[in-house]
Each structure stands twice: as C-alpha cells, then as structure tokens.
Design a binder for these strands. Structure first.
Length: 872
RNA sequence: GGGCGAUUAGCUCAGCUGGUUAGAGCGCACGGUUCACAUCCGUGAGGUCGGGGGUUCGAGCCCCUCAUCGCCCACCA
C-alpha cells in the first residue's frame, strides 16, 4: 500500500527540503559515480559575484542543470563547476555608488581602503546569487565553487600573464585606445557599442599659406585643435596644387602640412580631410604612415588640456560649441548640416567613448587565434548551432590586439614594475634595485574568465581534478559572449593546456519579453525569475525556459507560459495520485511481456517506447525543447487523456490478473516518464518518485530510460488509434446533436475488420463516450433508421438518436464528410497512379499510401451506402 | 558594406535527416458538479506556412530571388 499523497504539490515547502537533501547527500558530486565512470564536466559561466538572478541566469541554469542531471542519470561522473566572477567594472561601480551615497569617493578613501570595502561588499552579497541558483535547482558541486579572485585562480592569472610576456606576446606602450572618460579607464573594442545617432557635419575652410584654403568637414570640431595635417586625394584636381603647402590650424595658427593619401574619399564631404592622429582611429593610421605629430588635446576626463590653448579646461562638448562660434567670428565656417553618424558609446554607462592616447598593455592575439580557428575547423571543437562557427571565424580572422589593462582597482593587478628609465619588469615578486614603481593597472575581467575551464580545476597544478575532468565536455553559454568569452577560453585553453577546453559549445539565445523586446530597466519590462519561482515554483519556470525555444534563438518569455506549465506540474501530480490510489498490495516490478497485455496497454507501452527513443535522439542532437514538449504531449494527451481513462475498466471491473497487469503498466509509464522529466522538473519529479514503489534510491541518481524496442507495436498502435477515432467521432456527434452528456446511448456497429477488437473492448465506449451497449451487426445487415453514423476506416457506428436526428442535417453532414473523403481519395489515387511515385518513393511510403487509400475507400463506401439509404 | 536569424491560427511559438488530413499553449465559442485533477474534461471555429520562381514523384522544410522586422560585424571625415 502506497503512502498517502497530499492533494497538491506544495512546492514552497518541498523545493527547499529536497534541494537540501540532495546537496547534503553529496549527490551533486561526481564521486557518486564509480571511480572508473566516464567524466562529464561543465563549467558554469560565472555570474557577477554581487549580481542578482535574472532571466539569463535562469536560462543557463536550466539548460546546464538539465545536461548535468541527464549525464548523471546516464551513470557518468557528472561535474558542474560553479563559481562567480569579480566583474571588475560592474562591481567597482556598485561600490563606488555606495561610497557616493556615504558622501565619499574611491579617490578619497584610497586604493587600499577601497579594496577592503569591495571585499566586504563581496562577502555581504556574494552569497546571494549562489543561493538563487540553488533555488533554481542547480545541481552543481558547491564544494568546488570558485571565485575569479581566489588565490588559486589569481595565481593562474599571474602565471599566464608572465608566460605570455616572456613569449613576447604581451607588450606595453602608448596607443590610441577606446577611453571611457566617466570610468577613467581604457576599454576593449568589444566594450564599445556603435549606433547611428543624429548628429551634425561641420564644414569650414582650412587656411593654407598664400591666402588659399581647403574646405573640410568634421563631426567633431573640438578635434581641430589636435590636427596635424590636412589630407587630400593625390589625384584630386581641385586640391592637387596645394599638396606640400602649409596649412594653419584655426585659432591656434599652428603650422601643419597638406598631405596626400588615397585613403581619402573624394566623393564624401568636401573631399578633403583634417587629420587628428591622437583622437581618431583612421587618422591614427594615417599619422603613423605619414610620420605626423600626435597631439593629445584632452585630459582623461575628456576636458580639453593645455594643448587646446584657450579652450583648456572646457568639456569636449562645450569646446565643440565654443570653437565653432569662434571660427564663425573669424569667417572660417561654411555651414552645418544634419548628419546621422555612428557614435561610439560605452557598453556600461552609455557615455561617448573618446579615442585617446594612453599607455596600455596589449596581447598579440593572432598566434592564439590561429590555433583557435584550427580547432573548430578540424572539428575538435563543435559549435551548436553550427551557424555561429561562421561568426566565430570571422571575428578571429580579423582580430586586433587585445587591450588587457584597465585603470581600475578591483581586479587582478598586473604583475609588473616600471622603472624610472622606462624598463619593464614582469614577475610575481618585485625586482631588486631602486627606481621601480609597481604597475597600478588591473587586467580586463575577461582575461581571468578566459582561463575559467582549467583554472577552476586547479591548473597550473596537475591536480587530480584537472586530470579527471579536463578537458571539460560542453561549454553552455549565450551567443552574446562568443567573442568576449568563448573565443578567449578556446585561445587561452589551447595555448596553455594544449587541449581544447571543451569539445562542444552550446549556445542559447537571449530572453526577451513576451513581445520580443529586449528586456531593460528603462523599458520597464524586466521579469524577475524569483517572483515566478515564488508564484509557481522552480519546475514550471525551468520547463518553460527549456521548452520555449530552439538552440541559438532568442526566447520570448511570457509568465502565462509559466502558469501553463505550473498546471502541467499539477497534472503530473494528479496522474501519480491516481495511479497510487489504485495500487493495492505488492505489485511486481517491471512490465509483463507484451503478449500478456491488452490492446490499450500494448498501445501505451509502444508509445512510451517510441517517446523514449525519440527523446534520446533529441538529446543527442541538443534539441531539449522538442524533447520536453514530446514528454508533455505524451503524458497529457496520451497517458492521462486516454490510457488512464481506459485503465479504469480493468482496475474497477477486471479480474485480478487484469488489475495487476494494468497496475504494472501504469507504474511503468509513470516511472519512466518521471525519469525522462527529471532533468526538466527536478523537484516535483523527485517528490513523486518518493511515493512510487520499487524506487529505493533518489530519482536524481536513477537510471536514464532506454527504449525497450521489444514493446514497439505498430499494429496495436494502429488498432488503438482507430478505436480512439471512433470514440472521438461519437463524442463529436453527441456534441453536435446536443445529446445530454449523462444520457447513455447504444450503437449498432458494422465492425468491418474490427469485430474481435470491438467485442473485446466495447467497455471503452461505455467509459469514454457513454455508449452503454454495442450491437455488432452481421455483414449485410441493414442499418437502423433514424441514426447518425460515425465512420472510421472500415468501421461504422450507427447511433440511433430517435427524435434527435434531423435527417436533412445528417445528410448534409455526411455529404460534407464524403466530399472530404473523395478529395483525399482522388489525391491518393493520383499519387499511386503516378509511375514516378511508385518507383521512386521509399517502399514504406508507398505501402503506407496504399493502406491509407484502402481505408479511405472503405470509409467512403460506407458513407455512400448510408447516403443512399438515408437521403434522396 | 558584409553576415546571420525571423516571417506558420487572434497572440506567443513548435514543426532541423522532405513523405498521411500542418501542431501546442493561451485566447475564443458551445457543453460538462459520479469516485486523479475545475490547476480539470469534452466538442468546435480559426492557417493559400511573407511574395515570386526553381529542384523533386512529393516542399512549411532544399535552392534562387524579393520584401518586412530583428541582431552581429565593419575605419568613411
């Protein structure tokens, strides 16, 4: 006798309890598998240590936990390594805000104090995100949790930096970089977002010696102050004669040359270009090529510096206005036109990025990129979906050196010292001698993230974990960080471990709102996963995230879907409740052999078998969404709607043998389905599992189902389908004629080839469509009068509905149906009459078509007969 | 300027090795209080699968082309 189940799943009570039980029992650890088990390793994309769970986290947790639980159930030593990222800029900004609220600033408290405050912040909030991941059900091994600023990982970062420097791949020097004036740091190309914005193009005349002038255009007049040349196309007849002459920077009257370069587009603007090598990336190239002066006219906060003369101290945008006004007074300006153009903005904060000269550290990345390209090309790393390989190649093939230094305080400090005389020392310990200053800069956060798959396993030490679990198996993350993170992990992993850090990259999409809009605070369409968990539980949220999309495509999340899946959770609960409520005594484990089963049982077991192998195929090809939907459909539309309903007959009215067989089938379907469902909805399935007989261990450790092909049974599926269609047909008639649902009716049946089935399973119609009595007509018997008919295959049900059947309406209904049939028949005949189809299509397709045609014709014949009898 | 994705029912989406009558959830209409579930059950309406062309015995699916929307990459002042 099974223990009694509560009426509903109390997820609020159960989720925490179950999670604790799993974690305490050590079941998230790979050690639950035998020592010789194959390893499956997943590195969690580390969320920002002080972050809070958002839908993106919820999605990756769902998918990665699904993968991990699946592999664990398959008996692998499954290890999902969790951790958090120090997230340099993000965290520093948060702490800076806190200091501002306290009325102070990081500059005021100083570096040491600031770092102490940040660590305290991390201690305070660092556990929040990991607790929230637990609420999602994440089965990662928390004993192996890592933080990018841990000693071990920091050591790895230093080793890598020093090694790359020693290999000549890291260099330091003044370069034009993307400068964030607000954050006061350099950022990488990837951290700059470019979007077209309305703007203006300013036309003016550049004074040239001898009273000449060259008209030029610019979008940023303040950079005029840093001009060190005017450039024209060498073949431009308009300006050719001025090449080599001297021009004079407006306001400053600094002398600069007029040069020629084919880079200039004669068609654009005036066809002449002012060159500001220290404030524009294109001009920078031209400046180097023509050995021009580099004059920096801005400070680090984007105010003008002394080189800007009278404009020193002005903000860059104020300067833009001022200098233009001044030039207008001087009669130099020509016109200002509206000119939408691309403005670089900081990914964080949104301020306009300024190209600025500064001394930074760079990584020569091409040699690493070459290896990374090769690894994907030769298939040692596979990207799912495959189309992202193209994006990956394109980026790596055109990669620029990586600016890895940041003028922040929170992060891995670059292990270097700079001497007064300009020498650089790179190492873990300070160099001997005087005059050395430690480097203040820290590394780009992504530098340490790039080592994540192996640094978390103990590298550079040859730890047992590293040996057992590296290379990892799958890197599951969003396509939005394929450059930031995925490519860099591959490059650094190959470079330092000589192995691809993972064999598969699985990319998921972004979560959007239900209208497909990007989620943002300003739009006010943020979705808080924790609220959804509070409301519906983690399982419905996970199931929704897992089944709402396809790999690499964005998901529009709608809380209504979560609600719908919450109902699914309840449905599964009620199915189990029903099955257990109908168990008595000891039911033998496992299934009876197929020949001992009745038709509905053979059908449902065959369907389950098909489902299991389909799910397996879908998992093998990373189609988790489709797999989940199939399990859902099977359980609800086949198991609950049909098998459970049908099983009530043997359960309530059958003999002992029938009861036992049915119980065994019910339990088997449930047992298998819960296992298939567990990676999607771990909590409710684990809870239900505990009520099932024959389940000694926890579901989390149960064996993943394997399709028992001996139970595949096409014939039973076809027969059952016909019976189900008949039931639907009767229900349909009843609804159409508005027959009281409680009213029992009888049926006369021309059974065709289904005589035996109909005799044996007539109870089905009593149960499912309230047909209490079925009379099988002998062949050639006339159909009863005043009845509606249901035709499926070669079976006809006559429902004598005295007083309800309207002959005219019935005739119309039948005619409509006949027309439909005739159309299909003609289509089918055409097909089979086509020599090409018969000879070229696969034989099973042709065979199926023949069967179909035979059935259609049988049905049509019966309807035809009926029409003749009933209608004139 | 390149590249990618999307376009299927009123809404949000599945349908990825081409093959019965294209599906789901929600919404809508009608009907259901007997023993798993009203968090439910039954029935129904609703789609020329963005347009055009092609390949094929057969196309929502493959190829070409166009359109609209979205995203990524790219140095045009």
């Amino acid at each position: 006798m099974a223990k009694a189940m509560p009426k509903n799943f109390d997820f609020k009570e159960a989720e925490g309890r179950i999670y604790k039980w799993w974690e305490k029992s050590g079941w998230f650890k790979p050690e639950v598998a035998p020592p010789d088990a194959e390893a499956f390793t997943l590195s969690m994309p580390p969320p920002n240590v002080t972050g809070a769970l958002h839908t993106g986290h919820a999605l990756f947790t769902t998918v990665e936990d699904l993968m991990t639980r699946y592999e664990r159930m398959r008996g692998k030593a499954a290890l999902w390594v969790p951790g958090t990222d120090h997230a340099g800029i993000a965290t520093q900004l948060q702490v800076e805000k806190m200091l501002r609220d306290e009325g102070t600033s990081r500059q005021e408290v100083g570096r040491e104090e600031f770092l102490a405050r940040t660590w305290a912040w991390k201690e305070k909030y660092g556990g929040r995100i990991t607790d929230q991941l637990r609420r999602m059900g994440a089965s990662c091994d928390w004993d192996r949790e890592r933080f990018t600023l841990d000693d071990g990982l920091s050591g790895a970062v230093q080793d890598v930096f020093i090694s790359l420097y020693d290999q000549g791949l890291i260099y330091r020097g003044p370069r034009l970089v993307n400068w964030s004036p607000g954050l006061q740091t350099a950022v990488s190309d990837l951290e700059v977002e470019r979007e077209e914005e309305p703007g203006k193009l300013y036309f003016f005349n550049y004074p040239v010696e001898g009273g000449e002038s060259i008209p030029v255009a610019t979008t940023r007049p303040e950079t005029i102050l840093g001009d060190t040349a005017v450039c024209v196309h060498p073949d431009d007849d308009r300006y050719k004669y001025l090449i080599g002459k001297t021009a004079y920077v407006p306001i400053l009257n600094r002398a600069i040359p007029v040069i020629a370069d084919e880079y200039v587009d004669r068609e654009f603007g005036t066809g002449a270009l002012k060159i500001t090598p220290a404030h524009d990336f294109n001009d920078y190239e031209i400046g180097i090529k023509h050995k021009l002066q580099f004059i920096n006219v801005m400070n680090r906060d984007a105010t003008m510096n002394e080189a800007a003369g009278q404009y020193a101290g002005l903000d860059r945008f104020a300067c833009r206005e001022k200098i233009w006004a001044d030039m207008t007074v001087l009669g130099l300006t020509v016109k200002v036109v509206d000119h939408p153009h691309v403005v670089p903005r900081s990914q964080r904060g949104g301020e306009v990025i300024e190209p600025l000269m500064s001394t930074q550290w760079f990584l020569k990345i091409q040699p690493l990129a070459d290896k990374a390209i090769a690894a994907v090309r030769d298939g040692s790393i596979k990207i799912v979906p495959e189309r992202f390989e193209k994006v990956y190649f394109n980026w790596l093939e055109n990669i620029e050196d990586w600016c890895i230094s940041r003028q922040l305080w929170w992060g891995h400090r670059i292990p270097a010292w700079i001497h007064q005389d300009g020498r650089i020392f790179v190492g873990k310990l300070p160099p001997k001698g005087d005059g050395w200053t430690p480097e203040e800069d820290v590394l780009d956060t992504w530098f340490s993230s790039g080592l994540w798959p192996f640094s978390t396993l103990g590298w550079p030490q040859e730890t047992a974990d590293l040996k057992r679990f590296y290379p990892t198996s799958i890197m599951e993350t969003g396509y939005d960080i394929i450059f930031f993170w995925v490519a860099r992990m591959i490059m650094l992993g190959l470079w330092f471990t000589d192995k691809p850090p993972f064999h598969t990259v699985y990319l998921h999409g972004l979560i959007r709102d239900k209208f497909g809009r990007k989620i943002s605070k300003s739009l006010g369409n943020t979705i808080d996963p924790l609220e959804l968990i509070d409301q519906y539980g983690a399982d419905p949220l996970r199931f929704t995230l897992a089944t709402s999309g396809t790999p690499g495509n964005d998901i529009n999340l709608d809380s209504e879907k979560v609600e719908a899946n919450w109902r699914f959770v309840n449905k599964v609960w009620q199915m189990t409740n029903f099955v257990l409520g109908n168990i008595e005594g000891d039911v033998p484990d496992g299934l009876p052999s197929a020949n001992e089963l009745d038709l509905p049982s053979r059908w449902i077991v065959s369907r389950l078998t098909r489902l299991t192998s389909s799910v397996q195929y879908l998992f093998d090809t990373f189609q988790y969404g489709e797999a989940g939907r199939q399990v859902y459909d099977f359980l609800w539309s086949e198991f609950a709607d049909w098998y459970i309903e049908v099983s009530k007959y043997p359960l309530y009215e059958g003999d002992e043998q029938a009861k036992e067989n049915t119980r065994r089938v019910l339990l088997h379907i449930l047992n298998t389905s819960l296992r298939l469902l567990h990676p999607y909805m771990p909590f409710v399935t684990e809870e239900l599992w505990s009520y099932l007989p024959h389940t000694k261990s926890a579901l989390i450790l149960a064996q993943w189902p394997v399709a028992a092909t001996a139970y595949l049974d096409d014939k039973s599926e076809a027969e059952m389908t016909t019976l189900m269609d008949l039931v639907r047909g009767v229900r349909n008639i009843r609804a159409e004629y508005a027959v009281d649902p409680a009213r029992k009716i009888s049926a006369s049946v021309a059974p065709g080839s289904y005589r035996a089935n109909l005799e044996q399973y007539s109870y089905l119609f009593a149960r499912l469509c309230n047909v209490s009595q079925i009379t099988l007509l002998a062949q050639g018997t006339a159909a009863p009068d005043e009845s509606a008919s249901v035709v499926v295959s070669d079976v006809t049900f006559y429902l004598p509905l005295a007083g309800l059947v309207d002959v005219a309406a019935e005739c119309e209904r039948l005619t409509k149906e006949q027309d439909k049939l005739l159309e299909q028949i003609s289509k089918s005949k055409n097909m089979l009459g086509n020599e090409q189809f018969v000879s070229r299509a696969r034989p099973d397709v042709v065979e199926r078509e023949r069967t179909k045609l035979a059935e259609l014709e049988a049905s049509a014949a019966q309807i035809s007969e009926r029409l003749t009898a009933l209608c004139k």
